[in-house]
Amino acid sequence: MMRKRTQVREPRTDAEGERTMKKDFNGKITRGTQRTLDAFFDATMALLQVKSFADISVNELCEHAGYPRATFYNYFEDRDDLLTYCWTALSRQAELADLASTEPEHRIDIALDAMADLLESNTEPLSAILKNNPPESAMFASLHMFIERQAHEIIRTCIDRDRFDLPADLIADHYANTVLLVLDWTYLRGHPLTREQLHDYMHTLLRGVE
């Protein structure tokens, strides 16, 4: 008897080929939906601090969250989709000042501080999560990619486009990649720096275009 082949769903992607979530949670949502999302967020963060993402099943997530599998799949495509939501929820803790009203030469520092503040405010759980999910793991790659995308989105709003002869998007990518590099070195790969050192490293690496 032939065994029925399991159909593998392709992840949802946007026009640029980036993976997108099953649902858009950026708009106004009900209290019930928020309670559900909070429960799955808490379950994911708790489990990641004691085991690797690869070893966490949907059933385990549902058990810790207190919801059935049907509810999970009503909100999320799969575990990766839930993980993306968790990083998005964490990023909302970052408090960015009004960059448009800030002097252009200071915007990059404000953006760096906002992302550094976010990582530092979650040092304890992040350390536990990274202990169970090393740099070669899928979860680390997911976190790294999310921070990279956030950095690019933020930095594109910081660039003073009139300062350079090079294309603005190219400069924005260069700045974002540099910010990601020092954040990754400091917070994800375990090379502690003071905030002053963090800024010094960034500006030293950016000196080629500043």
Results as ranks from 00 to 15, higher is better:
residue 79 R to V: 07
residue 47 L to E: 09
residue 113 D to T: 15
residue 129 I to A: 01
residue 34 Q to R: 15
residue 78 D to F: 04
residue 207 R to F: 05
residue 54 A to I: 04
residue 95 E to Y: 11
residue 33 T to Q: 13
residue 71 T to R: 06
residue 37 L to Y: 10
residue 78 D to A: 04
residue 195 R to V: 11
residue 131 K to H: 13
residue 9 R to A: 14
residue 187 Y to A: 01
residue 69 R to A: 11
residue 54 A to G: 06
residue 129 I to M: 02
residue 18 E to Y: 12
residue 120 E to A: 14
residue 88 T to K: 14
residue 140 F to N: 02
residue 94 A to S: 11
residue 7 Q to I: 15
residue 113 D to L: 14
residue 140 F to R: 00
residue 115 M to E: 06
residue 133 N to F: 06
residue 87 W to R: 14
residue 63 E to P: 02
residue 180 L to R: 00
residue 12 R to L: 15
residue 58 V to L: 09
residue 59 N to Q: 08
residue 198 L to A: 04
residue 141 A to T: 11
residue 177 N to Y: 01
residue 160 D to H: 08
residue 151 A to C: 14
residue 18 E to G: 00
residue 98 D to F: 13
residue 188 L to Q: 01
residue 139 M to R: 00
residue 200 D to I: 11
residue 75 Y to N: 11
residue 26 N to E: 14
residue 83 L to H: 03
residue 62 C to M: 03
residue 25 F to A: 07
residue 186 T to V: 06
residue 7 Q to F: 08
residue 152 H to N: 01
residue 178 T to G: 04
residue 109 D to I: 14
residue 12 R to C: 03
residue 188 L to S: 02
residue 129 I to E: 00
residue 85 Y to P: 00
residue 66 G to E: 03
residue 57 S to C: 03
residue 44 T to L: 09
residue 179 V to C: 05
residue 21 M to F: 09
residue 116 A to D: 15
residue 45 M to H: 09
residue 203 H to Q: 13
residue 51 K to V: 02
residue 126 L to C: 09
residue 127 S to W: 01
residue 142 S to C: 08
residue 203 H to N: 13
residue 99 L to Y: 10
residue 200 D to A: 14
residue 98 D to W: 11
residue 9 R to P: 03
residue 142 S to V: 06
residue 141 A to S: 12
residue 8 V to P: 05
residue 159 I to G: 01
residue 96 L to H: 13
residue 86 C to R: 02
residue 2 M to S: 11
residue 115 M to I: 14
residue 169 D to N: 07
residue 77 E to D: 13
residue 128 A to T: 03
residue 6 T to L: 15
residue 158 C to A: 10
residue 116 A to R: 12
residue 198 L to S: 02
residue 28 K to T: 08
residue 106 H to M: 08
residue 198 L to N: 05
residue 75 Y to G: 06
residue 44 T to E: 01
residue 92 R to S: 13
residue 28 K to M: 05
residue 167 P to E: 00
residue 199 H to Q: 07
residue 34 Q to Y: 06
residue 196 E to K: 14
residue 105 E to F: 11
residue 49 Q to V: 08
residue 22 K to N: 08
residue 114 A to G: 14
residue 104 P to Q: 08
residue 29 I to E: 02
residue 188 L to R: 02
